[in-house]
Amino acid sequence: MSDPIEHVGADQSGARAEPVAAPKKPGSHSKIAHLRPKVNYEKAQAETADARAELQAASSALRTAEKMEGSALADWIKLNPAPSADEVTRQFLAGQQATRAARVEQGLDPDTRAVPVISKSPIDQFAAARGKAASRGGTPLRSNVVRR
């Protein structure tokens, strides 16, 4: 289907008339929204600016609070200095002496130390339970290569 023949005027001169703009009716508007997106964008810009200003203020307040906390902590540390090495040593020795005195009061040897438990692996426990004699039967723990 071909396109219709272009109208070139009654006199066939080809001169086209200028388009006449239709008078705009008061209150009429385009069916496609143009203003609302623009207004929303401007509102969003203002909201972002407000949020950034609030973030700046919050950052400044946070830095100030951190400085105040650091200052207060420094003052607290200055009032409560850490114990010196001598004080720690004296406290440790005093604790030991108190433990010894308590053992003496209980009628015990103050210097008794618990026997250290060593070699308590499962194999060691099995070897200790089976006794010294290798002739009891079972798998000998001695190497058969050595016995050869």
Partner: peptide
């Protein structure tokens, strides 16, 4: 100051 820093 610790409480203020937490709020900040």
């Amino acid at each position: 100051s610790v409480i203020a820093k937490g709020k900040a």
